[in-house]
Nucleic acid binder design. Structure first.
Lengths: 189, 189
DNA sequence: CTGAATTGCGCAATCT
DNA sequence: AAGATTGCGCAATTCA
């Protein structure tokens, strides 16, 4: 099938993924509800549920947070409708750290530009994931291929080794023969 | 690993569902939990036809967003890609189990049970993805390891081959020697 | 049928 | 600034 001979692919991803051990800012998105017209939280507070490194079982905690909110309503079909979301949020009180509500450019979710950006990102995300999927698949196939090749090589090695042993044996025999001959010719020490 | 790429989407089976009266006082007085996210996007409709034929014909189209919003009091991202084709369906007669989506038990998003289920799924999802990540990493490492091993094996093979050639050569020499000795008498090296 | 595991997708924060 | 990545939650499916 795909006889992609790419034997250097590894290098590729290796280079693109190696140097990291890794950022993982893991910035716990822990934003408990927040947002209405502006997103706040500039960065996440430290706290990244990192502590859960119990042995093997990572405890997949419920994160106790979660949240996103979106208002926007965008009149789907073709209506002028606006939205009536009215979502007040008091998160400002809850956020322990950072208060940067003074947000950076409020990007209303209703904005056409916002939608445009989202759509572009969605496309990018799909593309990226598709790429990732292909990469993974390729790596798997390559691994299998390499394993197969490995077995062949091992067999070849066994074969050569055996052949070599045979020849060595033969040679040693000849050697003995030669020795005998030599000894016979001068066995008078 | 079944990657059924439906792509065609469309077909919004009328959201049906009994739109529940959604009072927008989403306030969740109860414990924590609160929130929702939402949207319904204004359709994309862009369909910039033609242009985006990136790569091998895969064009990450905006999906013609087939999303329609569902009811849900809180509204939440919904993308139903139900590929219910437009075939008439007799299933209702034949399979008591297959039902039109319309009958889904309306599980209000505010329900505590709903949240519980969501949270559980979220945990499962994180777990699953973690597992996948580890698996991928492992495969990559295995591939690298195999490649490395392969090179060593190839070298070993080269070595053995060379050695074998040497011995063969030597043996051929001896053979000549033996022949000479046998034929003539003694013309050692 | 129930619950966990997967999978595709959109969102938002980052990284490049 | 714009695309690429990545962690996360949602919902539809698939597995057990």
């Amino acid at each position: 099938m795909s006889d992609s001979r790419v034997s250097s692919v590894i290098q590729e991803w290796a280079s693109s993924y190696s140097g990291e051990t890794h950022t993982l800012t893991h910035s716990t998105p822990s934003n408990q509800l927040a947002q209405m017209d502006m997103m706040s939280y500039g960065q996440s507070q430290g706290l990244g549920r990192g502590g859960s490194d119990d042995m093997m079982g990572l405890s997949y905690l419920p994160y106790t947070s979660s949240s996103l909110c979106n208002n926007s309503s965008a009149g789907s079909t073709n209506h002028h409708h606006s939205h009536a979301n009215t979502q007040q949020d008091f998160s400002s009180f809850l956020l322990p750290t950072l208060r940067a509500p003074v947000n950076k450019r409020s990007i209303s979710k209703d904005s056409a530009e916002y939608r445009l950006r989202r759509e572009r990102n969605n496309v990018a995300v799909r593309k990226s994931r598709d790429k990732a999927r292909r990469r993974i698949l390729l790596t798997q196939q390559r691994a299998m291929q390499l394993q197969e090749e490995n077995q062949k090589l091992q067999m070849r090695i066994g074969q050569l080794s055996q052949e070599l042993d045979s020849l060595k044996h033969i040679l040693s025999q000849r050697h003995l023969q030669g020795a005998e001959e030599g000894a016979a010719g001068a066995s008078s020490i």
